[in-house]
């Protein structure tokens, strides 16, 4: 019973910790060692566990060094970039609006070719934008991965 409570406590601490994975592992090992030592010294595991205090408080105090901004930061950045690129592509290609020199809405019925004023057409712009976005996302992932490695 006490063992199950300890495991649950350790799980809660790990979940609440905001630090690199290596540090999380170290804190987990320390928790296990401290509990083992308490039992070795004739203490009740539940009593020792109580001295650690609430799991989130312990996690905040123990792993309060550098919070990992990686995932949230990356996701927000990627979403913003995607929204920006999509908006720009949509604005320039204006699929909802017929060009000024089109004859009514009958483009399909006439042989008149509607040519965009941009040096590239809409699909190419979208494709280029997406490629740029993917490159940026990959760059962000690479930087986050490097930072993580440095922290470990």
């Amino acid at each position: 019973m006490a063992e199950r409570r300890s495991e649950e406590y350790i799980r809660q601490v790990k979940r609440a910790l905001r630090c690199p994975r290596a540090q999380k592992r170290e804190i987990e090992q320390d928790l296990r060692e401290a509990l083992r030592s308490a039992v070795e010294n004739g203490e009740d595991e539940a009593a020792a566990l109580a001295r650690f205090g609430p799991a989130d408080e312990f996690a905040r105090a123990a792993g309060g060094g550098k919070p990992l901004r990686g995932k949230g930061f990356l996701l927000t950045g990627t979403l913003l970039l995607a929204a920006g690129a999509g908006g720009t592509a949509a604005w320039f290609s204006r699929p909802w609006q017929a060009p000024g020199d089109a004859i009514g809405q009958a483009d399909a019925a006439t042989g008149i070719q509607v040519v965009s004023g941009l040096p590239v057409d809409g699909p190419s712009l979208l494709l280029g934008g997406s490629a740029l976005l993917i490159l940026l996302a990959l760059g962000c992932f690479f930087m986050a991965w490097r930072r993580r490695r440095e922290e470990q």
């Binding site: 001295r51 650690f52 408080e57 105090a61 123990a62």
Partner: peptide, 13 residues
Amino acid sequence: GFAREGTVYPILY
């Protein structure tokens, strides 16, 4: 007072 792991370990870290 009774030393608590919750106080001592964070200081050690």
